[in-house]
Design a protein around this nucleic acid. Structure first.
Lengths: 398, 398
DNA sequence: TACCATCACGTAAGCGCTTACTAGTAAGCG
DNA sequence: CGCTTACTAGTAAGCGCTTACGTGATGGTA
């Protein structure tokens, strides 16, 4: 076995290539060598590149001596496989794309918007965790309001599947994407095409919350802060409030419409505080962020929560438990949403997943104090359930 | 010019390849066609693949008629370039890797840890935003405590540069990485190798905070909740507290050591609340998360903040402004940190950046109410600066 | 009218890797 | 002792794209 001929076509400065990356290999005294390839490894170990590849990928049909020789060369040269080349050859990138929407580019507004991003951050984290478990990486791309979905399109050629979060693209775009790539949509209406939809059970959580307010606290008149008309979640929650309230014998005495942001909650809170009419005794906000805004204004205006007005939210974002009073809300399992999205993508890949399927995750009533319940004791970072009052599942049960 | 011969080497089921991805092209009735390549475009438009490539990349030397023909074919076929192939050929992936550390995998503990992740989330967001501006995507990888840095290593072969957040890898690993890839380290000590370090000015912010407590509120005795010994930030903040306190004529009357988590803050808060000795009148927590824990315990135990004990933090995480009382802290520009990291990476690429350089971002004192200042009025989502008392920059000034 | 830029496009090599196919060799068997 | 079988390892094609070179056609100039 003559030591394999190596160094093919002597890199005649032809097209493509050069050292790894377009990036200059030597900038201002920086020392960075050309990244070794399997050709270098092969030369070093005295084998062919096929053998190197087999050794690297732990394929069978190799003597352990040869394998050891190759792995030694890997150490000596500090070899790292070129994922791009691997992906091209192997036919899979081992990457999952995550497309999220960014509401604002405005830096001044950024800190305000942070609050609304907490939810997406959690989804991303869950997805990353799930992807990591199978050795995949997450390619993150955000889409600005007017920027179009070109960025999402480009992801098709760079990933093995796509997770679209929360209306980051239009319906047409979704269809286009799902026609040619495995796609999972989060918080989307029922699938029309190949995409798998993962969302939460808005109606169950909303129902539990309404029933808690009516049956435990005896409220018969509800105020509601609705979400934007464009939101599927907002619509579903509102529908359920109407239906459940009627069934439970309660009346809706006032509605306000926000856009899911904390500042819209503040606007509404101010309107209520400064209004002359009778205030509702309870204000159901259709998400936590608006509740945060309302709570802030009420604190400022000296309106006691929950004694004068009870306030509730929806989502259970991280900050809700740290508010004063801690916010009673419905937990939406954001991390699990992300994790489920990724595993559904894998299912789609292995043929186990059913295109066009819909997966609904359970929500959970989280009773804290803003509804009028009293925490009997504290547990780390959160309130214990009020003493015996409620039948519904409480916070931290998991 | 005879219409170019197309469809080379008739795909004889050879190695590699097949339709895009390892993923089956047809799962349970799902319709997904083989992704069109430039060969398909070339055939459709009646030109060669070189011409297609030139049209796609807006190169010159093409008649506008030909270009239009190619672009029409793109629309008709729904073509998306294969980023992997492009990356391999072009020599750049147009992707930036972001390596972050995950503290826990434990799902039950997850909600507790969320708080500590807020900071990293913000950094990621900033980086993504910055990358997006130049058409780059972010490849996100997290590293678990014991998982080793293999994942980071693999990123070298899949990205054009790496951002390492907050000690996600060891020093040796950092050196190894920086030797063969453009690397920016966040919250790292001074660079020893090629890496560029971006961090915040811990000492300036800490100094302002100490001086505020001493000169504005007249505190002469400070309690300090220190961070973990392993943290560079914690050490620097602590050093500055000691130095500045001495210079300002104040004494440190007690120190406790936490690990930067909210739960360690609760532990310490409990120890202080239940302890028999005299309580410090002010407690400087070296990050916000520990302050959150302290505040929670104090609320539970009926200790008035700031009247009995003033509490301060460091970081200005999102929730700090919504705590009761709103937390006085030092703002660390997390998003800017991420954005700066990415732009430094680009600088490194274009030769403008200096390897081994250190970039320090300014911090800002954020006076709210937990220090004893009183908000005169509220502004959206935050408190206005206390009336005339302070010289330091206040929150929301931007 | 011969010649030479210029333009528009085609040809083909090569990016680094995986893998089907092939070949050589040692062991097993009648 | 010739022949099959099982390993091990090499050869080369091909993944989809970019781009250095070539090559006709065109038009301008001497």
């Amino acid at each position: 076995m003559g030591p394999a001929e190596v160094r093919r076509h002597a890199r005649a400065g032809g097209p493509g290539g050069g050292p790894r990356g377009r990036w200059p290999s030597r900038v201002r005294g920086e020392r960075r060598v050309r990244a070794p390839t399997i050709y270098d490894l092969a030369e070093r170990a005295g084998v062919s590149i096929a053998t190197v590849s087999r050794a690297l990928n732990a394929k069978s049909g190799l003597s352990s001596a040869t394998r050891a020789r190759v792995l030694a060369a890997v150490e000596e040269l500090g070899y790292v496989p070129n994922g791009t080349a691997r992906g091209l050859s192997y036919g899979a990138t081992e990457t999952i794309g995550m497309v999220v929407a960014t509401r604002t580019t405005n830096v001044a507004q950024a800190s305000e918007e942070h609050v609304s991003l907490l939810y997406v951050d959690a989804v991303i984290r869950g997805a990353e965790r799930s992807a990591q478990r199978t050795g995949y990486a997450l390619l993150l791309v955000s889409i600005r309001p007017r920027s179009g979905w070109e960025a999402a399109k480009r992801m098709v050629g760079r990933t093995d599947g796509l997770v679209i979060v929360d209306r980051a693209v239009s319906e047409d775009a979704m269809t286009w994407l799902a026609e040619r790539h495995p796609v999972v949509a989060l918080a989307w209406e029922s699938p029309k095409g190949n995409e798998i939809v993962v969302r939460i059970d808005n109606s169950d959580g909303t129902r539990l919350l309404v029933e808690h307010l009516v049956h435990v606290h005896g409220h018969r008149e509800l105020g509601v802060v609705r979400g934007p008309a464009s939101s599927f979640d907002a619509a579903e929650r509102w529908r359920t409030v109407e239906r459940t309230a009627a069934a439970a014998g309660a009346r809706i005495v006032g509605t306000w419409t926000g856009d899911f942001s904390a500042s819209s909650g503040e606007r509404i809170g101010r309107a209520i505080a400064e209004g002359t009419g009778p205030r509702p005794r309870v204000l159901m906000c259709m998400n936590d962020q608006m509740a945060v805004g309302v709570l802030n204004v009420f604190a400022q205006q000296g309106i006691a929560v929950p004694d004068e007005v009870a306030v509730t939210g929806f989502d259970d974002i991280v900050i809700s438990r740290y508010l004063r009073p801690p916010l009673t809300t419905v937990r939406q399992p954001a991390e699990e949403l992300g994790a489920t999205a990724v595993s559904s993508l894998f299912d789609l890949a292995t043929g186990k997943g059913i295109p066009g399927r819909e997966i609904v995750l359970a929500t959970e009533l989280v009773v804290r104090e803003s509804c009028g319940c009293r925490a009997a004791a504290w547990r780390p970072a959160d309130a214990a359930p009020p003493d015996g009052l409620l039948a519904a599942t409480s916070d931290g049960a998991a």
